[in-house]
Design a protein around this nucleic acid. Structure first.
Lengths: 349, 349
DNA sequence: TTGAAAGCGCTAACAT
DNA sequence: ATGTTAGCGCTTTCAA
């Protein structure tokens, strides 16, 4: 049977082609192309020339099957739309770029079923590690991650029990910190504006932490406004109008993200409100992209790039030391990063 | 030699484990798990139960090697940071989600060498298709794409010769359209503000088209300002201050993207300029996220999501009809989408 | 409807 | 420094 005859598809080049073209055995060609083992400079040159001339591209499918090594790291995040995940991915890339590992990205759209599908799909490629947003997963997803025999890093949340390792900020603490800051600044009639999305656990935890801190200070949330769909400046503007129409005496508005916070800020400025005197405002995320607004919104930076970098580093280290250290035989580890409060121009000190 | 003994790594489950657990041959297990061929309901049930119980995850590496089919589509874009590529990716995902194909994303950071590396890496996985931003590639990259024997769709630009198929808007035409609109509106002293990045070919083509249209109308660009680094509202504000300090008589500012355009808009409003009377402004991209600013910036929408959808559709169709139709034996095809001019509140009609 | 055999393209392990 | 052999886990093909 001649090569390729099993399929009615034109075969791409193989090691064998390079071997024939260079007069060097397949095995040695393989060694040259992987920079592995001792190969004389002369043969190396012959092989490289032949490979380049033919335009040979190695087949990683075959290579990975043979070596039982796949230099991919699965990364699962909710979406790209809200600006926060691109920064995490950048952090991950920055670290992996210096290694043989390559990130492969998947999206859940905040839907557990989709997370399950994407995860199954990724694990079927036998990656060297998994980085996944959040600590809340379906039972099936947890089991898959536990059985996968690869290092697993859950990112952007540490409020809960990780499968293996978690890196990120505590959103409960972030909410609490913001509440404490604005109480200290003397604000008392506090409103909250945020997403209705029941599956954004991190937003929910921030709200919980915020509310608990208010209670500890003997305060209650005075009013709140929830919305569906994507965050935008326009949405924040509209919601702010509504909550203030209903509760004109609010003296602080806490937004679940900077995008809607920016809308609120623009609205308040237009209305001529004294910010931060008559009313204070704060968002969450520390979006650089909003710098340059007429005033700087108070916010809390979530250490996104650093989270990505640390997660990638953990995977890299463990992938190097062999796959001995996996979810099974390793103690759970939590790395909590500390968010920074930025007062900006919308929160009195 | 017992299974796995070649490696000192604990093996994950294989078909053979499911076969043994269910008392059905490996081959039939494979058929069940792929929904292929005729299998009796009884055996199917047995197999599914065993697979689920064991938590079996198929090994796509092995499967793809055997079947010579890889259900991956490589997608290469410059970056995620500037908001435009996430939308393209969303369009691609929307279409691929209904197929067995999965996107795999790579970034070039606008660097041809990195594009080359990423492309080589991707092709080594033998994907079913490639989607890549732009028409400008290094010689090596072009050759790789030509020899890859997979459908190739170049996106977001049609000003040039595609390797195989191109989908997107003409940036030259976009620049020209904007120039014609503002000339028709009576603006005459025109300034340009944009990125210095020599490798952002699309931004450059827009500028070329814009300039050519000015010349056709007997006008010259009155002043221009270039910057390095990422686009932000703050940057746009700063640049606008500078260009107007230097050339106070400008009556129109054309920004190479909406982000810096937004900064310019905020600056002009603050300065109390009559926009669009005394001075008109326009950006490029149609970023939804900026809706909600005090005024709506004139812009031109680049059909990003639609570009992604069409590209994905092309790959899907060709992947189905077998790999016969590849870059080699197919005529080059260009699909030009038409951008829409949005006047907003900053461009007189 | 089910099974057995061969082989996808490469690399680990073991010669030489 | 180079070559030989076996096999990675699955699917195609062919036989029963």
């Amino acid at each position: 049977m001649t090569r390729g005859s099993r399929y009615n598809r034109p075969p791409t080049l193989t090691l064998r082609d390079v071997s024939e073209a260079s007069g060097v055995s397949e095995m040695t060609v393989s060694r040259v192309l992987r920079n592995s083992g001792d190969v004389s400079a002369a043969t190396r040159a012959k092989v490289m020339a032949a490979a380049r001339r033919l335009g040979y591209v190695p087949n990683k499918i075959a290579g990975s099957l043979a070596s039982q090594q796949v230099n991919l790291v699965g990364v699962i995040v909710p979406s790209l739309s809200n600006m926060v995940f691109p920064e995490v991915l950048t952090g991950i890339s920055d670290v992996l770029d210096a290694t043989p590992l390559q990130p492969v990205i998947g999206f859940t759209d905040y839907r557990p079923e989709k997370e399950e599908t994407v995860l199954f799909e990724m694990l079927s490629w036998r990656p060297s590690g998994m980085i996944i947003a959040g600590l809340e997963h379906s039972e099936a997803s947890r089991r898959m991650l536990e059985n996968a025999r690869v290092p697993v890093v859950e990112i952007m949340d540490v409020d809960g029990t990780p499968i293996d390792t978690a890196v990120g900020i505590s959103h409960r603490r972030a909410g609490r910190m913001m509440a404490e800051a604005l109480i200290a600044a003397g604000y008392r009639r506090i409103g909250f504006l945020g997403t209705k999305m029941p599956l954004d656990f991190r937003a929910r935890k921030r709200l919980e932490g915020f509310r608990n801190a208010l209670r500890s200070a003997g305060l209650e949330m005075a009013d709140q406004e929830f919305y569906l769909g994507g965050s935008s400046i326009a949405k924040g503007r509209e919601m702010t109008r509504e909550i203030l129409a209903r509760s004109p005496d609010l003296d602080f508005l806490y937004y679940s993200n900077d995008m809607i916070g920016a809308g609120g800020l623009l609205y308040c400025i237009e209305q001529g409100f004294d910010v931060p005197g008559r009313i204070g405002l704060a968002g969450f995320n520390g979006l650089e992209l909003l710098e340059g607004l007429p005033r700087q919104l108070a916010t809390m930076d979530a250490e996104r790039a650093e989270t990505g970098r640390q997660a990638a580093r953990i995977i890299t280290e463990r992938a190097e030391t062999g796959n001995a250290a996996t979810a099974q035989d390793r103690e759970k580890m939590v790395i909590e990063l500390t968010p920074t409060l930025q007062y900006g121009d919308t929160l009195r000190r």
